[in-house]
Design a binder for these strands. Structure first.
Length: 775
DNA sequence: TGACCGCGTCTTTTT
DNA sequence: GACGCGGTCA
């Protein structure tokens, strides 16, 4: 085991101070790349060496992955048998443990289900339907978000109506029945013995608020509380932490206000900004030395984030090499952007001998991955996309998990709806609607009705009733085995007896085989889970234990070989906490980054922080690209470079061309003029054959963004060119037949204005629009 | 009851 | 351009 001296010897001055101060509340502001996780793990190790028992330390993170990594690192420092007993995990997993232990107090049983967001949405849809509300007005996603926000602010369904401000907002938004929906939703969740993610926080608060003996118990147990990523906490999390630490005040929170990017999930940046008001005697530590990035990258990121107001002042600096400036990549189209990025990656790989796994492409929205993927594929560059549909979102996995859920908690209506007709049992929608109506009317769960058909007025024919009863018995029978079989055997038993196994063996379609493999993977996961738990000394591992854990897992928790020789592609959000040698931030355009959904200054600042996060992922080089036109929602849009580009100190960025701007955001003459990075720099970066025409010496002239049909910028109109002549009759895949109205050249690209018979006038880039001349 | 077609809808998403 | 939903038909 390491000694205190050895431990402290591995830290710089400010890290050491933060680690050693444990006499009261502390706030550690950790700049990007400043060794935040290091401080947190060392701090916990230090507490352990100081004599705190591991079971008295509570450490909260936002992801399972972060918790796991920290635990491993602590185990390396002080030994696994210490680390094992730490209370370390996500807010949701730690609180669900507490809630399961005390479930009865708040009217649940310990095997309550955790509804994920699609379960909640489905419940809401059913409620809207039964209330006969138009889901164009009462949009389920919006209702769901509003419920989530209420709960994150500790407003329960029954308390909602006393918030007159919110009630007025609902009226103004023309959703006056919102509070009623919220209330029904809460009732139904309760009746289903289910909690959604937000309930885990809300009910933990209720538990600690209404049961002083429970609060006292946990206050005694947790002698020291540490919180990671404090800038992303919401009010509910903040309140729980405050409650638990109020007396002993041994609390340390770590975070970076400049990296607060989850407000849309309820995170409140004020929690970190106001922490010192909540704990006035709190000591503030700042970790300002960035160990990750070059001086240039740090300086560029600093210059960007300075444009935000209301931050905790800090001076992030780097002692690393100066490095190269940020390079801007300008493309004519989104497709070309992909090719330019792919070219650059190939160049880094072959000429600079960077590994593909050194490179990451970050984008604002998942939809952007498509072009990039295509470009990488054409260049034979291996890549891996993170995000998108998760393992746990796959239909077959959800089906299996639904059976687990139902067997463990038969009141779980969402699971029941999923299971009852898969595999098909001849119980259709009409039958289910009848049952749902009765259940709604009598305020009982679907399971209650199905188990007591004779006691409820359900008009069913005999065969249907029999099928329902058979289903009830099947589930009941399996439930009885829960306490005798271990998790793995139970899972096997379930997929056999409910017919999923037969279903998976019924044909040899690639799709089915794929599903079978996924289910197999899930089963392997259960097996591993059992082995791990047994190794840790836990006795009989039941399916409940597995389900409790898996309900709070995301695809990020599945081990993925990061070291594989592959380019990483992900959203900027997903990249938080990671670092790469070379970062490509793509799609830096107005209406995309910052998002078109941004309405106010507060939101704009969050987008800026998001860009800050993106840049600070880079160790050595950061490339930023944008396209002048982009396909979005099936339509070609002309775009303008992001205003954030002009927020960065222009001395630190390298542009392909001088900037002249006609209005608004301008990239004034301070920038250096260099060669286009891609047209001349190396023999390697010749355009790939797939991008036939020459790469743009793109100008950054601003194009008014809409409407598209009016955008003809100083056209050099010609009567023929690009293989077409004005007056040609042409056909387009999507728009049909039309007549070429005019042709013009713009930076080596031909644009045609075509009047389509059925679709009106469109402006098309000939390079990409598959126009064919017809006679 | 299930399969198919057309239409409207699109952010980000640690749990 | 893709997915989910609602409507229609076999």
């Amino acid at each position: 085991m390491i000694t205190k001296q050895e431990l402290l010897g591995q830290l710089n001055e400010s890290q050491r101070e933060a680690v050693m101060y444990n006499d009261g509340p502390s706030l550690v502001i950790a700049g990007a790349g400043s060794g935040k996780t290091r401080v947190l793990t060392f701090k916990i190790a230090y507490l352990l060496l100081d004599g705190y028992a591991p079971s008295t330390i509570l450490a909260l993170t936002f992801t399972n992955k972060a918790a796991r990594e920290m635990k491993t690192r602590i185990a390396d420092l002080v030994g696994a048998n210490y680390a094992k007993y730490l209370w370390m995990g996500t807010f949701h997993s730690i609180f669900s443990r507490m809630l399961r232990a005390e479930a009865a107090k708040i009217g649940f049983t310990s095997n309550f289900t955790i509804y994920d967001s699609s379960d909640s949405r489905s419940v809401l849809k059913a409620i809207l339907k039964s209330m006969n509300l138009d889901d164009k007005v009462y949009k389920p996603a919006m209702i769901q978000q509003r419920i989530s926000f209420a709960k994150n602010n500790l407003i329960s369904a029954s308390a909602y109506e006393s918030f007159t401000q919110l009630m007025m907002e609902d009226k103004a938004m023309r959703i006056p029945l919102f509070s009623q929906i919220f209330y029904t939703y809460a009732t139904q969740c309760h009746q289903a013995n289910a909690m959604d993610f937000d309930d885990l926080l809300l009910f933990t608060n209720v538990l600690l608020r209404d049961f002083p003996e429970v609060l006292e118990n946990y206050r005694q147990r947790f002698q020291f509380i540490l919180v990671d990523e404090y800038q992303d906490t919401n009010l509910a999390q903040h309140a729980i932490i405050k409650r638990l630490s109020e007396v002993h005040r041994h609390i340390a929170v770590v975070g970076d206000d400049a990296q607060s990017i989850y407000s849309f999930r309820g995170a409140n940046i004020d929690n970190i900004l106001q922490f010192r008001n909540q704990f006035p005697e709190c000591k503030l530590f700042k970790l300002e030395q960035n160990y990750r990035s070059t001086k240039n990258i740090v300086a560029a990121a600093n210059s960007l984030i300075q444009k935000n107001m209301g931050q905790i002042p800090k001076n992030v600096f780097s002692e690393n090499d100066k490095g190269s400036p940020l390079q801007i990549i300008s493309a004519i189209t989104d497709q070309e952007e992909g090719f330019l990025v792919a070219d650059k990656i190939a160049y880094l790989h072959y000429s600079e001998h960077h590994s593909y796994s050194d490179c990451a492409i970050l984008y604002r929205t998942n939809a952007q991955s498509r072009n990039l993927e295509e470009a990488l594929r054409k260049r034979n560059i291996p890549y891996r996309i993170y995000g998108g549909l998760s393992f746990y979102q796959r239909k077959e996995i959800r089906d299996v998990l639904a059976y687990f859920r139902l067997i463990i908690n038969p009141f779980d209506d969402e699971a029941l709806k999923r299971c009852i007709n898969y595999p098909t049992r001849g119980i259709g929608e009409t039958t289910m609607q009848k049952i749902a109506d009765v259940a709604y009317q009598y305020h009982v769960s679907l399971w209650n009705v199905i188990g007591n058909l004779s006691s409820y007025p359900v008009p069913l024919n005999k065969p249907t009733a029999q099928r329902l009863t058979a289903f009830h018995q099947l589930i009941q029978g399996l439930s009885d085995e829960l306490t005798t079989l271990n998790a793995y055997d139970m899972a096997m038993q379930i997929i056999k007896s409910v017919g999923i196994q037969d279903e998976m063996n019924s044909d040899y379609l690639a799709e089915t085989i794929n599903r079978r493999e996924n289910i197999q993977e899930l089963l392997n996961g259960i097996h591993l889970f059992c082995e791990k738990k047994v190794e840790e000394g836990d006795g009989d591992i039941r399916l409940n234990d597995f389900l409790a854990e898996v309900s709070l897992m995301t695809d990020q928790d599945i081990d993925q070989e990061m070291e594989a020789e592959k380019v990483t592609m992900m959203t900027v959000h997903a990249a938080k906490g990671l670092e790469f040698r070379d970062i490509f931030v793509v799609g830096m355009e107005e209406e995309l980054f910052p998002s078109a959904y941004v309405t106010g200054e507060r939101e704009l600042e969050e987008e800026r922080r998001l860009f800050y996060v993106a840049i600070t992922r880079a160790q050595e080089q950061c490339f930023i690209s944008f396209a002048r036109s982009r396909f979005r929602n099936g339509q070609l849009n002309f775009t303008n470079p992001s205003r954030f580009l002009s927020d960065i100190d222009q001395e630190l960025i390298e542009m392909p061309m001088p900037i002249h701007s006609s209005n608004g955001s301008n990239f004034s003459g301070r920038s250096r003029v260099v060669d286009d990075a891609f047209s001349s720099k190396s023999s390697f970066s010749k355009p790939s054959p797939t991008t036939s025409s020459s790469y743009g010496t793109a100008s950054w002239k601003k194009i008014p963004s809409k409407p598209i049909s009016e955008q003809v910028e100083s056209p050099r109109s010609q009567s023929s060119g690009g293989g077409f002549t004005v007056g040609d009759k042409v056909v387009h895949d999507k728009f049909g037949i039309g007549i070429v109205q005019s042709l013009e050249k713009m930076d080596d690209h031909w644009k045609a204005t075509v009047d389509f018979n059925d679709n009106g006038v469109k402006i098309l880039l000939l390079k990409y629009a598959k126009l064919k001349r017809i006679d």
